[in-house]
Every structure is written in C-alpha cells, then in structure tokens.
Simulated scan of single mutants.
Amino acid sequence: MKQKDSLKFTNKEVPDIIWREAYVALSHYPELKDTPITFRFKNNIKKSFMQAQPSFSGIFKNRKKRGYFVFINKEIKIEDEVFTVTDAPKDVIIGWIGHELGHIMDYRNRSGINMLWFGVKYLTSHNYIREAERAADTYAVNHGLGKYIIATKDFILNQSDLSEKYKNRIKKLYLSQEEIVELVEDLDELEEEAKKKD
C-alpha cells in the first residue's frame, strides 16, 4: 500500500506518521465522531508541542458544524534541546493528542463570541491558561485516557531532556501525576458502584 502524507477517516485528516495514535485517542471521544478535525504539522508553535483551535472561518457556525485544527510542532526547541514527534513513545503521543481533544470538547460547548473571549483570556491571563489546561486534562482522564496522560507527564518530567524551565511550566499549568491518578481512582470507584447497581 502506498504511503500517503495524511489519511482521512470519518471527517478527520491525520498525518500518516501519527494516524494510529490519533485513532486510539479519537476512539475515546465518541462525541467527536461527526466533528471535523484536521491534524496538521506546523512550524514554531510557541511554548507548546501541540495546539487545538477552532477553524476561524467556522467560529460563528452552529457548534455542531464547527471544525477544528490540532496543530503539531514539527519540532520544538526549548533552550538547547530539539524535540520531535518521533522522539516520544506512542503512549505519550496518544496522551498529548487526548489532551488536545479535551480542549476541543471544551470548545464545543462555547459560542463564537465565547470562543473569542476565551482566546483573549488565554493570551492574557496565566490563571486562565492553568484553568483551561487542567480542564483539558480532566476531559481526557474522564474519557478513559488516564494512563496515556500519566505517560505523557512522566515522559516530559522524568524521561526527556527538556529544560527545567519547560518542566516547571508543565508542573504549574497542568494536572499533576498524583491528581490524575486520583481522578482515575475516582472513576474506577464510580464504575464499580455502577456495576453493583446493575
């Protein structure tokens, strides 16, 4: 089979190099089945490896018809370290994509005006960035991606050569590994209770 630069499945466009990881992450979000999402490599996303955002041409469309992009840095240079998508294990990429899909879940509930206001606050408020990033992590964990989010945090904080400055930013803005484990345990307890009721 001839390799393509990107594959399309159910109105999703995904670069071939990450289509398996994207497929796993998307399978945890059945609500996004009919949502158009384009994954695209991009140069120079500042301070981040991936970034989800609505399609600006459709920002004022009906929320159900709005499309989204997940931009992925071809490489991220933090101080003297250069990091690419192929440097990370598959579970880490699944976690990263799962986090970005968490942002899209959040965006789906917002009107066009609210999305614009969200963008302004995200660019100007450190506390708002923290709130948005922790919400995306929570969406991912609540959709069964807890082990992948933990793998991503572990890779960034303990296994990669990324700078301490970048690692400290992750610690400040995102859920900690301990908080994620606690969320996963809470979900497991709820599932057990639901099974007992059945």
Rank of each mutant, 00 (worst) to 15 (best):
V184D: 13
E182H: 11
W19V: 02
R20L: 08
F49D: 04
K167F: 02
F60S: 12
A135T: 15
R40F: 02
L32Q: 03
Q53E: 15
K196F: 10
F155G: 00
I150L: 15
N142A: 13
Q53V: 10
I170F: 07
Y68S: 07
I94N: 01
S6K: 05
K65H: 14
R108F: 04
E100T: 06
E179Q: 15
S125F: 05
I72L: 10
H28V: 00
E31R: 07
A88Q: 14
H99V: 08
L190D: 15
D137C: 05
V181K: 13
G119I: 02
N11C: 11
L116T: 04
P54D: 02
L145R: 02
L190M: 11
T10R: 12
I149W: 02
S176I: 07
M1W: 00
H28P: 06
F9D: 01
L183N: 09
D188W: 00
K171E: 15
V85W: 10
P15V: 03
D87R: 03
S176W: 09
D5V: 01
S6R: 03
Q53I: 13
T124W: 00
Y139F: 14
L173T: 12
Q53H: 08
F60R: 01
Y139R: 04
G67M: 08
K42R: 15
I59D: 02
Y166W: 13
R63Q: 11
K74H: 14
F60Y: 13
K4W: 00
F49Q: 02
T124F: 11
I113A: 12
A135F: 04
A140I: 09
E178P: 05
K2P: 12
L190R: 14
D16K: 01
N44S: 12
I113L: 15
T84R: 15
D91T: 09
S176M: 06
L183K: 12
E131P: 00
N62F: 00
N168A: 13
I156K: 02
V120N: 07
L123Q: 06
V120L: 14
S125A: 04
E131D: 05
R66Q: 11
E100H: 09
G98W: 11
N158R: 12
K165I: 13
